[in-house]
């Protein structure tokens, strides 16, 4: 696979906010830049609006205020030239297609040539060798998520959006994927935005961790992760990494207790 020559896009969110019908404010006017080629993890308490933010960046959710620019283009434009892919929280595999068929469909939708050989390579990479012809119903939850990740990678997008993609993946595979995936997106040259619940995963996978407050989502802290690559699981036990993990944890619990203050005061 020859590496893509165009540099990965920079994503700029300007005053990006979302208020749902009925008045629930999910995201509060965010100004945020995701640098070209970087991996950024978004962490925050459940229901804080992380997924909504991700969906607005993909243009799947219309923002109530502000705008998103992906390398200077609007999300819709980027989607139309297959410049992004999303790995959804729910793997969203079509049940009547095999693993191979689901990945091929993404290429078809993206109007890219369907190269069976590189699909097989991806299947192998996410540890599903031997399951290319299996249908989603025959796979475990974790295997389905891995298939969805392979599908997201298949179109070699400039922007990769991952919404808790490892939720149902078992711990061992998770560690393996955490080692392998960054290599791919480095080789492919992607800007990656990852929504996750796991603090250690956020630290080990990304160049930057952004901690969001409970709903409506605001930026609590923005922590650069300066760790050498390739990262390994052993690094989690290193002093630096452990400190970073601790830092993210305390930012998370601060933001939570801050949000609960008004209640406690009553």
């Amino acid at each position: 696979m020859p590496p893509d020559r165009t540099p990965p896009p920079e994503i700029v969110c300007t005053g990006l906010g979302k208020t749902f019908q009925g008045g629930t404010e999910a995201v509060q006017a965010l100004d945020l830049t995701f640098e070209s080629g970087q991996t950024t993890a978004l962490v925050g308490p459940s229901g804080c609006g992380k997924s909504t933010l991700l969906r607005m960046i993909a243009g799947l959710e219309e923002p109530s205020s502000g705008s998103v620019s992906i390398g200077g283009a609007a999300p819709l434009e980027t989607r139309k030239r297959a410049g992004l892919s999303v790995a959804f929280q729910d793997p969203s595999l079509l049940p009547w297609r095999s693993v191979h068929g689901n990945i091929a469909l993404a290429l078809k939708l993206a109007r890219k040539p369907v190269d069976s050989h590189s699909i097989d390579q991806l299947i192998q990479l996410v540890g599903l060798d031997g399951f290319a012809d299996a249908r989603p119903a025959e796979l475990s939850g974790g295997m389905r998520q891995r298939a969805a990740i392979a599908r997201a990678l298949a179109t070699r997008p400039g922007l990769l959006l991952l919404d808790e993609p490892f939720g149902a993946v078992d711990e061992l595979t998770r560690q393996q994927l955490a080692q392998d995936l960054p290599r791919i997106w480095e080789a492919q040259g992607t800007t990656t935005i990852l929504v996750t619940h796991s603090v250690s995963e956020a630290v080990l996978l990304s160049d930057r961790v952004i901690v969001l407050s409970p709903r409506p989502a605001r930026i609590v802290t923005d922590i650069p992760i300066v760790l050498p690559r390739p990262r390994t699981q052993e690094m989690a036990r290193d002093r630096t990494a452990a400190d970073l993990i601790e830092q993210v944890f305390s930012a998370l619990s601060d933001s939570k207790s801050e949000a609960e203050k008004p209640l406690a005061a009553q």
Binding site: K80, A82, D90, L109
Partner: peptide, 26 residues
């Protein structure tokens, strides 16, 4: 079909017709 299947089609910049062919009809 669940909404996320349509999101998938949309995430590749494709519209109603692709959704009908690849998702709804099946």
């Amino acid at each position: 079909a669940p909404d996320s299947w349509f999101d998938l089609v949309r995430s590749y910049g494709r519209g109603r017709f692709s959704a009908l062919v690849h998702v709804r009809a099946m």
